[in-house]
Simulated scan of single mutants.
Amino acid sequence: MTPDRVVLLEPIHPAGVALLEAVTHVTVLGGTDDPRLRHAVAEADALIVRSTRVDAGLIAAGPRLRVIGRHGAGLDNIDLVAAESAGIAVVNTPRSNTESVAEYVIGTMFQLVKRIDDVRGALRAGAFSPGSSLPGQVDRLGLVGREISGLRLGLVGAGAIGRAVARRASALGMTVGAYDPFVSAAAMSELGITAHESLESLLAGSDVVSLHLPGGPEARGILSADRLSLMPPGAVLINAARGELVDIDALIDAVTTGSLAGAAVDVFDPEPPARDAAILHTPGIIATPHMAAMTAEALERMAVEVATGVLHRLDASDG
């Protein structure tokens, strides 16, 4: 019996590749510019992707496709309607990067609240004079940070990652609130999270806001200029979810004018941002290249889980 053919649009961790190679024929491509793409997809029984867009055209190019595997949590880069119409199963790895992203949120929160980038920049720029105590100059330069304990964390979305952030924040002495119309107040209460009935209420009562929503047209610009203005003076925003959730121009303005103390942005719309994009060069904004989930542990888990899911679906369709 001819083994199933699995195409990896991009390389994944060797542990996942090994699982696939044990029972299937695997082709590893170098992305959508790989000249082998169309031929490989035309012969593939399964396609595994990371963040690359899988549109109706690519799906139509694979008449044998039975499974699409998403190496990651979100599915907004896959045309689910086209996949369903073609009878193609879609699998993902919804919890594989939970811990890594939650740690990114907490880590960047510390950087922002403690003003780490600001004080390092001032030190490198020679803002501190000799002959005077450094702590006193930190105060005089307006570079004093805040204690994490006692601050209010607001989660926009209380799924697996949001809950993982909440656990860590609670351990640090923060109070945690969340807005998520799909999670009951009772379920949040069991986790020590206070449920908010509106996004506006959450924003107005949070010193740190972290976004944990899927993308999509209905979520585009959900953090608008008007909503950002509801956040208390000195608050910070962290977005490690989807770039389209935030009005970037409004965010830059809020940080530049001091309405917000800072922000951490790990996702963009589009990706990557242009080298001269203002978001990359605004003091007070930590911009990182969609790397919150990029830890050795998470990458191995994602590879193993997507390979396992794809193989399970192939076995089921063979039966």
Rank of each mutant, 00 (worst) to 15 (best):
T2H: 08
T2W: 04
T2Q: 12
D4H: 14
R5L: 04
V7R: 00
V7S: 01
E10T: 11
P14W: 10
A18R: 13
L19H: 01
L20H: 09
T24M: 03
T24S: 14
D34Q: 05
P35C: 04
R36Y: 02
L37T: 11
A42C: 03
A44H: 02
D45K: 01
A46P: 05
A46Y: 05
V49T: 13
R53A: 13
V54S: 02
V54R: 01
A60I: 09
G62A: 08
P63A: 08
R64D: 12
L65Y: 04
R66Q: 15
I68Y: 04
H71A: 02
H71T: 07
H71R: 01
D79H: 04
L80W: 12
L80P: 08
A83W: 04
S85N: 13
I88C: 02
A89P: 02
A89T: 09
V90M: 07
V91G: 00
T93G: 09
P94F: 09
R95F: 13
N97Y: 04
T98E: 12
T98Y: 04
S100E: 11
G107P: 08
F110E: 06
Q111S: 15
Q111K: 11
I116A: 05
D117T: 13
D118L: 11
R120M: 15
G121I: 03
G121T: 13
Q137T: 09
V138Y: 01
G142M: 10
G142A: 11
L143V: 05
G145H: 03
R146F: 12
I148A: 12
S149W: 06
S149I: 04
A158E: 01
I161M: 07
G162P: 02
R167E: 15
R167V: 14
G173D: 11
M174S: 08
M174Y: 09
G177S: 15
A178Q: 03
P181R: 08
F182Y: 15
V183E: 10
V183D: 10
S184W: 12
A187H: 12
A195M: 07
H196R: 11
S198K: 04
L199R: 06
E200K: 03
S201G: 14
S201F: 06
L202E: 04
G205Q: 10
D207F: 03
V208Y: 01
V208G: 00
V209I: 13
S210H: 01
L211P: 02
L213R: 01
G216D: 14
G216E: 14
E218H: 15
E218I: 13
R220A: 14
L223M: 15
D226K: 13
D226L: 06
L228T: 07
S229P: 02
L230Q: 10
M231L: 13
A235I: 04
A235F: 06
L237I: 10
R242F: 09
E244V: 08
D247Y: 07
D247T: 09
D247I: 05
I248W: 00
A250C: 09
V255H: 01
T256D: 11
T257H: 07
A263C: 10
A264T: 03
A264R: 00
D266E: 09
F268E: 02
F268Q: 00
E271P: 03
E271H: 06
P272M: 06
A274S: 14
A274I: 06
A277G: 05
H281V: 09
I285G: 00
I286F: 05
T288N: 07
M291I: 14
A293Y: 14
T295S: 15
A296C: 05
A296H: 13
E297T: 14
V304N: 07
E305R: 00
A307P: 06
R313Q: 15
D315P: 00
A316S: 10
A316Q: 13
